[in-house]
Design a protein around this nucleic acid. Structure first.
Lengths: 190, 190
DNA sequence: GCACGTCTAGACCAATCGGTCTAGTCTTTT
DNA sequence: AAAAGACTAGACCGATTGGTCTAGACGTGC
């Protein structure tokens, strides 16, 4: 077996994905271990086999997995984009669609990387690394589209900051338009 | 006794303020009731006298109190501002100072209004109302400073959205510059 | 001076928390 | 076929959770 070449979800992956969803819905402390295990259909023993440090380990794995998913969406949005604004717009629309699928109730997948649990510094460091990966990915597309390295990094930060806040507002209002309106907010009328 | 005319903090107020801080630091589920009570120096009985529905009631009161505090800072920032950008800048600097005082570890006071606990809809509705109060306050200053009602509301939303995201990024990096850099990000070089 | 509403005080409770541990079941290697 | 890991399975644990309930302290109107 050479790792993740097969397609059916392994126990470990099912655990991570279920945990990701529940952490996003209820927060780190709000999502009970037994609830996660029950929904994933995995016994306690397996959890502590794959994640020796238990819940905290699982949360970090969930954050990492989430960051990779976000990066995948960024890739999908910018790969064929003719310019920066188009990439941002596509991303926002994709995420607005996700927002609607998620019942409009979940925390922002990106923000959700920052857990509020104990072990503050471990979670903070994990979130910082994930954020940087996300911003760096967006910045790379900025450079590809003609921006200077500094300008690209700045544009990527502004983009992610704006997205963050937009998701929060969208969540309190249960309306995804806020997300779709972000490009206009950031860059003016098209 | 005619309500809140005296100055020394009542049991109820001590409870709200302690709860606000702990919710901000550890989230709704993360902040234990006994911890809140111990730090506030208040017994269980008093809590359930003032807040019959317990933790959920307390959380809503905390959200409300926080919104009022934010509005106070908005007032202080915009009252004497010569234009919109100055108001936003002053607000960002005041909040950056607060961020540093808070050890750079707490959740955004505004975002923190949105609790991740159970009773989702009650908390969501409470947060929506508080957000609207905050945005409406900022928008009013926008109008005073010459913007049309629609433009003022839009500017206020953009401002709060940007602030939200900036605090999050500042928190993961433990650096308050992100907050101070928001006006330039939103409105270009001064 | 006693009765009544407000508020404080904390013992107590069932339920749940995250985590440990032993037992058993596969799969792979020899 | 025997031995050895990898992994699953869940009973069990002490600690803590939010919440209830009774008892008393304090002030105020009669």
């Amino acid at each position: 077996m050479l790792g993740a070449m097969t397609e059916e979800p392994t126990t470990r992956d099912r655990l991570i994905q279920t945990a990701t969803r529940l952490f996003r819905q209820r927060g780190y402390e709000g999502a009970g271990l037994s609830e996660i295990l029950a929904e994933a259909g995995v016994p306690k023993g397996s959890l502590y086999h794959h994640f020796p440090d238990g819940k905290a380990d699982l949360a970090c794995a969930a954050a990492d997995w989430t960051a990779s998913e976000i990066i995948r969406v960024i890739d999908d949005s910018f790969r064929a984009a003719p310019d920066w604004r188009h990439g941002v717009t596509t991303f926002c629309y994709k995420m607005a669609k996700l927002f609607d699928i998620l019942n409009s109730a979940d925390a922002c997948p990106i923000f959700g990387l920052l857990f509020d649990g104990p072990d503050q510094d471990r979670f903070r460091a994990q979130a910082e690394q994930s954020f940087d990966r996300i911003i760096a990915t967006a910045a790379r597309y900025g450079e590809t589209l003609g921006l200077s390295p500094a300008a690209a990094h700045d544009a990527a930060e502004t983009f992610i900051i704006g997205f963050q806040g937009s998701w929060t507002l969208a969540r309190t209002r249960r309306k995804s338009d806020v997300l779709r309106g972000l490009p206009k907010r950031l860059y003016g009328p098209a």
